[in-house]
């Protein structure tokens, strides 16, 4: 108990760091994931190939390796102007986007083919068909897996701590280095993660219920 109260500012900063990093990465992953899913179902072969390559690359690379790439390869290629937080955002966002893409794609395949055919026969373009007809109807099936993906993202963001980004898991290292008992520190860190992941699953449960009513 004392560890938490005595170091409330550190815990608070770590907590806010994790929430911000998770939220920003989730947003990036969402945008990239939906775009890549669009590529993967597109009638244009090069786009399909790009989408498939993207998923293969980012889904099959260990996240820690992506962090190392962001830290050591990205600055060598694009210059050193990026701060650690941005690099962590890119690694987490790109990694998670591959999973979002596959969840969205599986949702797209649950929408009956006739819906897209009807849209196309009205003269809608591929992107109109996807945006106006297919994706809105895929949302319902995509929400539950997205919840799991974002919870995993929250926990994955702990890796950023090892790369000197201020976040929850880093607090543990900071305090145990100062010689405090490890067990209570871990307990408080774990509870803080639980607060975030429970909020995410609660939020998505709410969303699921809303979509059920709205058809």
């Amino acid at each position: 108990m004392n560890v938490l109260l005595d170091h409330l500012p550190e815990f608070r900063d770590g907590f806010i760091g994790t929430v911000l990093l998770t939220a920003a990465s989730a947003l990036l992953a969402m945008v990239l994931g939906v775009v890549m899913a669009g590529f993967r179902v597109s009638p244009v072969p090069p786009l399909r190939f790009f989408g498939a390559a993207w998923v293969t690359l980012f889904r099959n690379t260990p996240l820690t390796l992506l962090f190392l790439v962001a830290w050591f390869v990205v600055p060598a290629v694009f210059g050193t102007g990026m701060n650690p937080w941005t690099k962590a955002l890119l690694a987490l966002g790109f990694y998670t986007s591959a999973f979002v893409c596959e969840a969205v794609r599986s949702g797209v395949s649950t929408v009956p083919l006739g819906q897209a055919e009807a849209a196309r026969s009205l003269g809608m373009t591929f992107s109109q068909t996807l945006r106006l007809i297919v994706l809105p109807q895929a949302t319902r099936t995509v929400v539950p897996p997205l919840s799991s993906i974002f919870i995993a993202l929250t926990k994955n963001s702990a890796i950023a701590g090892a790369f000197s980004v201020t976040e929850l898991f880093g607090v543990q290292k900071l305090l145990s280095d100062k010689g405090f008992a490890i067990a209570p520190i871990f307990l408080w860190v774990a509870l803080a993660y639980l607060v975030i992941t429970f909020s995410i699953s609660g939020l998505f449960r709410l969303l699921e219920r809303r979509l059920e009513v709205a058809r």
Binding site: P43, G114, Q115, E117, A118, S121, G123, M124, R215
Partner: peptide
Amino acid sequence: QEGKELARLRADVGMVFQSFNLFAH
């Protein structure tokens, strides 16, 4: 070929399907 021009042409051709295919949402 598939693309904007085909989309324009499809708009001039009405289609009614066996399974209706009304937009469910």
